[in-house]
Nucleic acid binder design. Sequence first.
DNA 1: CGAGCCGTTGAGGGGATTCAAGCTCAGTGG
DNA 2: CCACTGAGCTTGAATCCCCTCAACGGCTCG
Lengths: 245, 245
Amino acid sequence: MPPLPVIALYRQGERHPQAQACAACEVRSTALFGALDDAALDRIHTHIASLTLEPETTVYDRGTAGLAVYTLRSGVVRFERSNARGDRRIVRLAGRGDLIGQEALLQRPYTDEAVACTPVQLCRIPRTLIDELTRGENTLPRALMMRWQSALDAAEAWVFDLSTGPARLRLLRLLRRLAEHTDEAGLIWLPRREDIGAMLDMTVETASRLVSTLRREGVLELLPPRHARLDLAALEAATRRADEG
Amino acid sequence: MPPLPVIALYRQGERHPQAQACAACEVRSTALFGALDDAALDRIHTHIASLTLEPETTVYDRGTAGLAVYTLRSGVVRFERSNARGDRRIVRLAGRGDLIGQEALLQRPYTDEAVACTPVQLCRIPRTLIDELTRGENTLPRALMMRWQSALDAAEAWVFDLSTGPARLRLLRLLRRLAEHTDEAGLIWLPRREDIGAMLDMTVETASRLVSTLRREGVLELLPPRHARLDLAALEAATRRADEG
DNA sequence: CGAGCCGTTGAGGGGATTCAAGCTCAGTGG
DNA sequence: CCACTGAGCTTGAATCCCCTCAACGGCTCG
């Protein structure tokens, strides 16, 4: 699936402060609301909130009323589910440019708990705003459907890549995926061992053993806390060995 | 997630033969295209193809151009992915009332191979038809988004339920899910052991051993080929034991 | 009736879990 | 300053679950 245009609001030469912020947004590439008139654009910008969250902060809880969708401008967000006994499973990750919390547009409660993994920058877009804009518009539904399909694809790929095969291979594939979210310093976010466990359905001990092994093999350089540098070539080689051999 | 209204085309007293078939459709409950005028409705019905497929028939292949979406009127369809080496994984199931192949509406190739598990009855709806109808319509996008969200939810639940925990528990949860698709005779579709393996990431031998064990425990009565009768109470009890104990 | 697919069962080995102990490191208070 | 503490990470040893390899029986079909 090709990269999607980022949902962002912008227009050149706008006076509203938030409009300027949107105009300067570094992840904008396609104006989802490009077809709107000036009045609508101004009204939009006053309702968009830009927020920054610390790691481990909850964006929204599973089951709560969905009042807004979010565009993820930077950082990594995870989606979790857990049962009454506290067994936890991370079922998906979102990265730069992804739209999260789309359930809100259907007046549905959020289906997962969304938690920041790294520092994240979000644009909060109230549900009612999109409701308003959808009336009579045609481009918006299509762009939204694109996100939905993208999320669905990600969820199915999660099953195929991260829930299939021996533990070592699953971890290698997770690292490959985390490499997509490399930060400015060239580092990846390396989850706590417990979170690796929740992503790959393994114990913390197994996660720790495997990470340590990869470190000794030179695939990974640990840079605590929660960061690492990857040797992509070594990673690819190890992956090929693990799944061919 | 509450049950979704089935996407179906119908209108009372229509003359076109397919229109009559749609009017008589047993899974209709909400007219997705209810707001259309007569001419549009007639044009629609001439393009809807109703088809019946044998088990193991492919509905569409992963990667091929998506030219139509399908409403599943009866039966079970599975979504598969596989890599170059032939490792196969079933990543989702669809049942009565589900909409499949939504990627087509975005002019995207199908992201999975879709295969009939049981005899299935489908309504084939050409992509262009929906394109046409979406112009100026408002209710359609919302209903479609509902399907998308539903599919996404199913995919994430698949990770949480069927890719987590020990093999026996995963199988019990799969059976619970297959019970949702019980047929007129009160039987469930019981996949081939190889397919159980592809759903739950286990070998055919393990799948066979576990199924046999459940049969001996009275949870399951095998009715080859590919069918079984479930003792739901025993199933729940076994699940609780496996889960808590 | 032999060929092939599917399901079942056994034996053995390996990979992941379980249980346990010790480590590093940051924060705290004596 | 430094022992104390607790959370997160690592490592070891024993166990067990699941995989691998193998053999066999039932069934359909050419």
